[in-house]
Write a protein that binds this DNA or RNA. Structure first.
Length: 342
DNA sequence: CAGATTTGACCTGA
DNA sequence: TCAGGTCAAATCTG
């Protein structure tokens, strides 16, 4: 048992070190005149290393109380392995009710720029079906309950609750629950960059919402039409947290390889969603680099409500689209840094 | 007519 | 016990 853990840790460290090396190689390639293919290859290697590392982490994590969700998420992150699908299917109705509280949940506040006054009209890239509305005690406005349109067909358990803010009725508080397991989840991620390409390649071709602000990805790969104000993550009930406080300079990697975006939705749900949900994060419309930081709490008692305010202006370093800087030495606490630099 | 929305009833969890 | 969440029949809409 212990041997297994040690072996796993060694593998994990090995993968992370490898990832770092690839990142360093990529950095040197960026300053040289290497071909785009070479850079992409390195990016793929980096991502692969992290995927492996994360899968190794998940092995340990699944032994902890809330292992299912973690494993599920990580498997999905790695590329939607069949295992995650099986696990999702195991979520029968009773289970889903029992685990209602344990489902990943995060709230974001969105400025209602649609002018429609219709909460559900906030287009986040998914199709939702309203299944309820309720007056909430102490709230002026009722809360709308939405679930994925594909719930019946594909068993997608994603839901969201939309409630207008008391203080500012133009602000919608949207609480997302669960993750999309339906096909549109991947569809959203894949079509977004394409859309950008269409605009770039053929300016005459008008998309139906061409006069809206450029769409942005939120933690789940959702599209935001409105101006996102703040994102909260709630109820991470994983009992043990495995990530130290973690800063991670990130840059958009351009439109060619968006499928390989770091930290896709499932992982974000568990640990990273708050920070990755910065409006500028992975935003095709804003190639500027963003520094995002996250603090994952390590004790059970102070896990909830990681609140990360999204920057409202672009004040980032002038790094170009293809820049990807991963400074592990500054990201990890001293002992981890030493491990990586040894 | 199929799919979405509304809304009162019912269920769950704190 | 009660507020929040979900169900499901009725109704609406394209």
């Amino acid at each position: 048992m212990e041997e297994t853990m040690k072996w796993g840790q060694l593998n994990l460290m090995s993968e992370l070190i490898q990832g770092k090396e690839f990142a360093e190689q990529l950095c040197s390639h960026l300053s040289s005149s290497s071909s785009l293919e070479e850079k992409e290859l390195l990016l793929e290697k980096i991502l692969l290393s992290y995927e492996k590392a994360l899968s190794l982490l998940s092995v340990g994590e699944t032994e902890v109380t809330n292992g299912k969700m973690m494993m599920d998420s990580l498997c999905s992150f790695i590329g939607g392995s069949p295992k995650s699908e099986v696990l999702d299917q195991d979520f029968n109705h009773k289970d889903s009710i029992k685990k209602r509280k344990t489902m990943p949940r995060w709230t974001k506040q969105v400025k209602d720029c649609s002018g429609t006054g219709l909460e559900g009209s906030q287009d986040d890239g998914y199709s939702w079906r309203k299944y309820g509305q309720k007056d909430i005690l102490g709230s002026k406005f009722p809360r709308g309950y939405y679930r994925c349109t594909h719930r019946n067909v594909q068993g997608c358990l994603a839901t969201k609750q939309v409630q207008r803010s008391d203080e500012d009725p133009t602000i919608l508080e949207i609480t997302y629950r669960g993750r999309h397991t339906c096909t549109q989840a991947s569809h959203v991620k894949k079509t977004l960059p394409l859309k950008r390409k269409v605009i770039e390649n053929n300016p005459m071709q008008k998309h139906q919402d061409h006069d809206q602000p450029l769409l942005e990805l939120n933690p789940e790969g959702f599209l935001n039409v409105g101006a996102e104000v703040e994102v909260k993550t709630e109820e991470f009930d994983t009992k043990e947290k495995i990530f130290p406080p973690f800063c991670f300079p990130y840059a958009s990697i351009g439109s060619e390889n968006e499928d390989n975006l770091l930290f896709s939705e499932p992982l974000i749900e568990n640990h990273f969603m708050g920070s990755l949900s910065s409006p500028k994060f992975i935003s095709p419309a804003t190639p500027e680099t963003n520094i995002f930081c996250l603090n994952v709490q390590t004790s059970e008692s102070d896990v909830t409500d990681t609140v990360i305010s999204a920057p409202t202006s672009v004040t980032n370093s002038p790094i170009t689209d293809l820049d990807l800087l991963i400074d592990f030495d500054s990201c990890f606490p001293p002992n981890e840094s030493e491990l990586f630099s040894s």
